[in-house]
Structures are given as structure tokens and as C-alpha cells.
């Protein structure tokens, strides 16, 4: 039992060290220190937000939810998933030097990166929505718990996917170029700039399986409970997705750990 906890303690130490290193590396790569790390995704999100807001305003689409909130939940959540998945793909190569130290295992780098991304994008989400609330002088957050759980479940999904990607990318190197290309079109099927209820009935089953779309819709619903989500969207499904993807990721990782550590 003692040994069991010791393993966890070591992993916790390793992950905290990796997070420290990840943040320090990013800080050293950008200007303005800690804020610089935060500004980049914030800037990208803001630009997206402005462009799509303008487009939607021009088209004259009006929903129950504010346009900005509608878009920000889509963009931030999708980017979160995308970043974790793609960064996990590179995690092995980027951290190769660190496997020099015996306690550092490949999975730790993915977990550390996921934690960093989750933290970063949750901050981005908080700042942007906070900004929107201040600008509109209106507080619209009906169900904070739902927002948080959705966010965490999605990053759990992304973590599982990231682990699988890391293993796949190591075994079949061509996937390192292929996966980012495949992830692009997901932008269009994840409901970043449309809601599930706004697309034709026959299309819905084709996209509603997507946990990213589920998470985005749930977040919108959590902002304003009047925002209608169809029956096919459920938090249970999203959490199940997260658990399943993590289980699958861990299973595939366990079977391949030795290969990942071999040079």
C-alpha cells in the first residue's frame, strides 16, 4: 500500500516539475513573461471572436444567447481540444531530453501539457466572458457547475485522445503530419459557429456523436438555460466519452510504454 502511494507521489512530483518546466519554457519563448503566455491564445480567440461576430451580425442571425458568448464557448472549447491533441502528438519529441531522468515517463508529459492547456484556456474563457459581461453590463451565467464540469470532461476527452495520438504517432511517424490535417475539418463539424438545432434534422445524427460539439452546446446551455439543446446532447454522454477515451488511451499506452521509451 505504501509503495502504491509512493508511486503516486513520484508521479505528482514529476508532473508538477513538468508543468513548471512547460510554463518556464513558454515564458522564455515569448515576451512580457507570464502575461505573454496568456496573451497569445487570448489574442487569437479575440480575433476569431470579432470576425465571426461581424459575420453573424451581417447575416442578421439572432439567437437567445448573446452572439459573443455563443461564439466564445465554441472557439475556446474547440481550441482547447485541438491544442491538447496536437501538443500531445509532439509531447514525446519535445520532451525527449527529459526522459533522461528515470521517473519521467512519456505519459507524464502528456498529462502535464493537458493540465497546462486546461488551465490556460479556462483562464482565457474566464477573461473573455468576464470582458463580455462587463461590456454588456449583464451577468449571464446560469449554471456555473455545468460549465466547469463540461470544461473538465472535454479536457479529459482530449487527454485520452492525446495519449492515443502520442502512441500512434510514435508507432507510425506519418501520423504526425496526418493527424493535424484531419483535425482541421473538425472545426466545421463541432458546432463552433452553429448550434445543433439550427442544422437540418437529417444532419444532426452525423455530428451529434462528437464530444466537442456536445461540450460546446452544453457550455452554451450553461450560460443561458433558455438556450435550447436537443435531446441528443447530454452531459452523461460527454463524461462517458471522457472516461472511455482515457481508459482506451491508458490501455494503449500501457501496452506500448516500452516502445515509447526505446530509442
Amino acid at each position: 500500500m505504501n509503495k502504491f502511494f509512493r508511486g503516486f507521489r513520484i508521479q505528482r512530483n514529476v508532473i508538477s516539475a513538468l508543468i513548471y518546466r512547460e510554463l518556464k519554457t513558454r515564458i522564455s519563448e515569448v515576451q512580457f513573461g507570464v502575461i505573454g503566455v496568456f496573451i497569445e491564445p487570448l489574442g487569437v480567440m479575440s480575433v476569431f471572436l470579432i470576425i465571426f461576430t461581424i459575420i453573424r451580425e451581417l447575416r442578421g442571425v439572432r439567437g437567445i444567447l448573446d452572439v459573443e458568448l455563443f461564439l466564445v464557448s465554441g472557439i475556446v472549447l474547440f481550441t482547447l481540444f485541438n491544442e491538447i491533441a496536437i501538443r500531445s502528438l509532439n509531447a514525446l519529441q519535445a520532451n525527449e531530453a527529459l526522459f533522461f531522468y528515470r521517473p519521467v515517463k512519456p505519459i507524464d508529459t502528456v498529462i502535464a501539457r493537458s493540465v497546462v492547456e486546461t488551465g490556460l484556456y479556462s483562464l482565457v474563457l474566464i477573461v473573455i466572458t468576464g470582458g463580455i459581461f462587463l461590456y454588456k453590463e449583464k451577468w449571464v451565467l446560469d449554471n456555473f457547475a455545468l460549465t466547469a464540469i463540461t470544461f473538465l470532461s472535454l479536457s479529459l476527452c482530449a487527454l485520452g485522445t492525446g495519449i492515443s495520438f502520442m502512441v500512434a504517432g510514435h508507432r507510425y511517424p506519418f501520423l504526425n503530419q496526418f493527424i493535424p490535417i484531419v483535425l482541421r475539418p473538425f472545426w466545421f463539424v463541432s458546432g463552433v459557429f452553429y448550434s445543433l438545432s439550427s442544422i437540418p434534422q437529417w444532419l444532426r445524427p452525423l455530428v451529434s456523436w462528437n464530444p466537442i460539439l456536445q461540450a460546446i452546446e452544453l457550455t452554451r446551455h450553461s450560460f443561458n438555460s433558455n438556450y435550447f439543446i436537443s435531446d441528443s446532447i447530454s452531459l452523461n454522454y460527454l463524461i462517458t466519452c471522457g472516461v472511455v477515451s482515457c481508459t482506451f488511451g491508458l490501455w494503449i499506452y500501457l501496452n506500448n510504454e516500452k516502445i515509447l521509451q526505446t530509442k
Binding site: Y20, K24, T25, Y101
Partner: peptide, 16 residues
């Protein structure tokens, strides 16, 4: 890691 300072690298290992 080259981009980090000696101190940061040492901190990283010490944390582990």
C-alpha cells in the same frame, strides 16, 4: 533544455 537557464533546469530536476 537549452532555452531554460541553469537554475530552471536544476529546479526541474530537484522537483522530481
Amino acid at each position: 533544455q537549452g532555452s531554460l537557464s541553469g537554475r530552471e533546469n536544476v529546479t526541474f530536476v530537484s522537483k522530481i
